[in-house]
Computed example of a mutant assay.
Amino acid sequence: MSSQLTDTDLDSLINDGGLDLAEPLDGTLDAESATLAPHKDLSFFGKIPVHVTLEVASTEVPLKELMEIDTSSVIVLDKLAGEPLDVKVNGALFAKAEVVVMNGNYGLRIVELCSNGLDDLTA
């Protein structure tokens, strides 16, 4: 059986535990705290599926021009041929890559990781 905590019980636990929720966290730890902190196993997160897309390029065109497109039309994009392409994970820029072919399948060779890497994915 599980019991639910009331707001009063929760406040008591926070106050008795010496937690000050009004105190801002600056993300710094002293050496003693850092050695006492247990290592967190993050392998669970490796099982979460994410959506990886390759963005070749983009452009902005007026709707009128888009409505006049037929099968022989060419839309000029904003990247030069040979420029690295954007790899996005769940819509956030993750890396720059070039397209390769391996055993008849397309693949991506990562040529540059973005400065924030996976940090942008948590937003």
Rank of each mutant, 00 (worst) to 15 (best):
79 K>Q: 08
95 A>I: 06
74 V>M: 06
96 K>A: 09
84 P>A: 14
70 D>M: 02
76 V>S: 09
86 D>M: 11
71 T>N: 02
77 L>P: 08
97 A>V: 09
97 A>S: 09
72 S>L: 06
70 D>F: 03
101 V>F: 06
85 L>A: 03
83 E>W: 05
78 D>F: 04
94 F>E: 03
102 M>C: 08
78 D>R: 00
68 E>L: 08
84 P>Q: 12
88 K>S: 09
82 G>M: 07
72 S>W: 01
100 V>F: 06
81 A>I: 15
72 S>A: 12
71 T>M: 00
71 T>F: 00
89 V>C: 12
90 N>H: 08
69 I>L: 15
91 G>R: 10
72 S>N: 10
81 A>E: 12
95 A>L: 09
100 V>N: 04
68 E>K: 05
74 V>F: 01
92 A>W: 09
67 M>S: 13
98 E>I: 15
78 D>N: 12
98 E>F: 11
99 V>R: 01
98 E>V: 15
71 T>Q: 00
94 F>A: 10
72 S>E: 08
78 D>E: 09
68 E>Y: 03
80 L>K: 15
73 S>N: 03
99 V>E: 15
84 P>C: 14
92 A>Q: 14
91 G>T: 12
94 F>H: 07
83 E>V: 09
99 V>D: 09
76 V>L: 08
91 G>F: 07
98 E>G: 14
67 M>Q: 11
73 S>D: 04
100 V>L: 08
85 L>H: 06
86 D>V: 13
95 A>W: 00
93 L>H: 12
98 E>C: 12
86 D>F: 14
73 S>E: 02
82 G>D: 07
93 L>K: 10
73 S>M: 05
71 T>I: 01
80 L>R: 14
84 P>L: 13
78 D>G: 05
96 K>R: 15
81 A>T: 15
78 D>L: 03
91 G>L: 10
101 V>T: 15
100 V>S: 11
82 G>Q: 06
77 L>S: 02
97 A>C: 14
95 A>F: 02
101 V>D: 04
83 E>P: 11
96 K>V: 07
79 K>F: 08
75 I>R: 01
96 K>F: 14
102 M>W: 05
85 L>D: 00
89 V>E: 02
90 N>M: 10
100 V>P: 07
72 S>M: 05
93 L>A: 13
93 L>E: 07
84 P>T: 06
90 N>C: 06
76 V>T: 10
68 E>M: 13
102 M>V: 15
72 S>P: 00
92 A>Y: 13
85 L>Y: 09
73 S>I: 02
90 N>Q: 06
69 I>P: 00
78 D>H: 07
75 I>N: 00
87 V>C: 07
87 V>P: 01
80 L>V: 15
102 M>R: 12
67 M>D: 08
77 L>E: 00
94 F>M: 15
100 V>W: 02
85 L>I: 08
80 L>I: 14
67 M>G: 07
79 K>N: 07
94 F>I: 12
72 S>D: 11
102 M>P: 06
87 V>M: 08
75 I>Q: 00
71 T>Y: 00
94 F>G: 05
90 N>V: 07
96 K>S: 10
87 V>R: 03
89 V>L: 12
73 S>Q: 04
68 E>G: 05
95 A>V: 04
69 I>K: 04
88 K>H: 13
79 K>P: 00
67 M>K: 09
83 E>G: 06
97 A>R: 04
76 V>M: 10
99 V>N: 05
92 A>D: 11
71 T>L: 00
93 L>N: 10
